[in-house]
Every structure is written in C-alpha cells, then in structure tokens.
Amino acid sequence: MKKVILLALAAVMTFGASAQKLKGSDTVLPLAQKEAESYSVVNKSSNVSVTGGGSGVGISALMDGSTDIAMASRKIKLDEKMKLQESGNTVIEKVIAKDALAVIVNPNNKVSQLTREQLEQIFTGKITNWKEVGGADLKIVVYSRETSSGTYEFFKESILKNKNYMASVLSMPATGAIIQSVGQTPGAIGYVGLAYLTPSVKALKVSYDGKTYIEPSFANSKNGTYPVVRPLFFYYTKKNEAKVKPFIDYVMSKDGQKIVGEVGYIDVL
C-alpha cells in the first residue's frame, strides 16, 4: 500500500511543477540522474526528468523542442547546428564533465606502453602479434564495444582516425564484459572508461607524439596531458536559458562537480 502511495506521489510530481527535461547520451545519463536527484534535494520545488537514447536522439529532441537540455558525449555536428539555426534557435554549449578512456591489457602482458599509431594498427588488424610491439610471442586478441556505443565511435575517431576496426574484432555488449574477458585472456587488448578500471586488468600508457607516454589517471586527464579524453556536453537553446540556468549552475557548482567525481568522470572546475 505504501508503495502505491509513493508511486502516485511520484506521478503527481512528474506532472505537477514546470518540468525540466533532459534527453540524450547514455554515457551522460548516470551523471545527469545523480545531479537531478541531489538538485531536487536542494531545490524542493524543482522537477528534472532525465531520459537516455543516445547523443543524436537528444539533439534531435532539442530541435523539435521536446527536451530542454540535450545531453551529448560528442560535439554537436555542423549540420545539426545549422538545422537549429535555421529554426531561429541559437544553441549554447556547456562542457559539464570529461570522460577519459583507458586502453587495457591482461596484467601478465609485458607491454606497458603504446603509441597511437601502434594502437591504430592493432585495432585495424595490421599488427597481430605482441612481439611486434615489444611483447611476448602471443597473438593479439582485440576487444571492442558494440557499434551502437558512443565509446566505440569516440575511440574510432580519436585513436583510429576514423578508419574502421578490423572485421574480426570481438565486440562485447558492456564494459564489464570487456574487463572480464581482458582479465582472463593473456593476449587481450581493449578499452574502457577510466572509472571502470579494476586491478584485474592493466592500463597502458599512451603516446600521441611517439615520445612521451602518459599514464591514464584522473590527474593526467584533468591537466590535459592524457590524450584520450572526451568532453561531455549539455546543449540548450538561448530561448530556454532562463528556465534551465538554475540546474546548470548547480551542475557547475562545487557540489555538482563533486558528483561528477563520484560517478567516475573528471570534473571541470
């Protein structure tokens, strides 16, 4: 019975006060949900609803006005920006957090650092044995995320320079599955968000210039030396600025950015 009352209460609240709607990237989703929860504690009359669906879905919802804020794990595309401009909206971009990707291998692997070129050749299938990059004589087993994942796209853009992964790459449905598989496969290599690193895998140092190898860590991602970092965005239209400002100010505040760290992303204070 208690449950029913709570549910009814929740329903009333959802349809009650003027709601702010957030829609978009599944990467930003857990962060936005946490922010919305603690925002509603601070600001009792507020009502923020958060839904996922992917960065593209969020931005097209912003275009047709069915959301107030679009969450995105990639920068808005030029043609999306154009479309918004055509309908008389100026879009405002806010970087609310950053997310770093770590390249991981099995803990028993001798290799502890790779250049971007080497990573590109491994993921496109040009390098197939660890001995070619200074490791043991062992076949490289490449793990990737599914094509639908934003992480897959970001890694493809950043490391592979928009080339396609090789056909025989193993695609795993979730980050947890990649960690499990890399941890139990001696020749494995894969990539996961920094927040998901566990002792059962080893993170590689990565170099973009071929000289300095940077270890993936929160400090290095924050000061910009670690290269495989992507910003996470909120997009909203100028028209709606007054409506969404209090929530965005909260996210950018010290309390809001503390949550960013708790969820496992890098704050932008």
Partner: peptide, 8 residues
C-alpha cells in the same frame, strides 16, 4: 539485440 538500440 546489440545494435537496434542506437540505430536511428
């Protein structure tokens, strides 16, 4: 199952 979620 893996791809339908994000296919436009």
């Amino acid at each position: 199952a893996a791809e339908l979620g994000e296919a436009p």
